[in-house]
């Protein structure tokens, strides 16, 4: 499983982008999105999901329930 960005909430500030340990965050036309196959929920890197912690808008980086929870190898 992975995190996703709620596009309607994203201000496009880019704060999340450099914080991601897996370079899973990308930008398209000023709106940011997460590539689910790259996101590890920060497991193995940090205690908190970095995109969530860095984002200035609450509930913008959220769990994407369309994917199963990430399992550390």
């Amino acid at each position: 499983m992975a995190y996703k960005i709620v596009a309607s909430q994203c201000t496009g500030c880019s704060a999340c982008d450099p914080e991601c340990p897996n370079q899973a965050i990308f930008e398209k036309n000023g709106v940011f999105y997460i590539k689910p196959e790259k996101c590890t929920e920060c497991i193995g890197h940090f205690d908190e999901a970095q995109c969530v912690a860095a984002c200035p808008v609450d509930k913008t980086c959220i769990i994407d329930t369309a994917y199963p929870r990430y399992q550390a190898a």
Partner: peptide, 13 residues
């Protein structure tokens, strides 16, 4: 564009 703190007089939009 990015910021790393939140101020009560700022709306990050």
């Amino acid at each position: 564009p990015a910021c790393n703190i939140q101020c009560n007089y700022c709306n990050r939009k």
